[in-house]
Amino acid sequence: MVDFKKFVKRRQNDALEINDPSATEEAAFEQELRNALRPLLAPENFADRVVARAQEISLQPIHSFSTRWPISRWAVAAVLLLTIASGGYLEHQRARRIAGEHARQQVLLALQITSSTLQAVRSKVDSNASN
């Protein structure tokens, strides 16, 4: 089926070219470009070389995480490093907290001992005074 719009457009273009020599020149120049830019032949045995290289690739894992996603590989390394570093920091904080608690217990124990010693001394002094 003939596309009526295209047909009219073509006729208009033809009429333009008849009346306007520069339009014809332009069309001729564009045709010259098309002729000059026809696809070139690929080098000899090009396909053989590409297929050989592709076969080398197919020996590698198809969806190798590290080769397909090199950026992700770095991201994973960064996350691991961050996890280890934050784990170490948290462990250090925990050890400090335990040591602080232990010291507090020691101080409390010492205070208790001191308090009971003072209590005993005071009892002795009181009993001596009453005698």
Partner: peptide
């Protein structure tokens, strides 16, 4: 397959190289 890929390369090598 190698044959399928070869056909693909041969169909487009001229255009891509040009």
């Amino acid at each position: 397959s190698s044959q399928e890929f070869r056909e693909l390369v041969e169909a487009h090598q001229s255009r891509v190289f040009s």
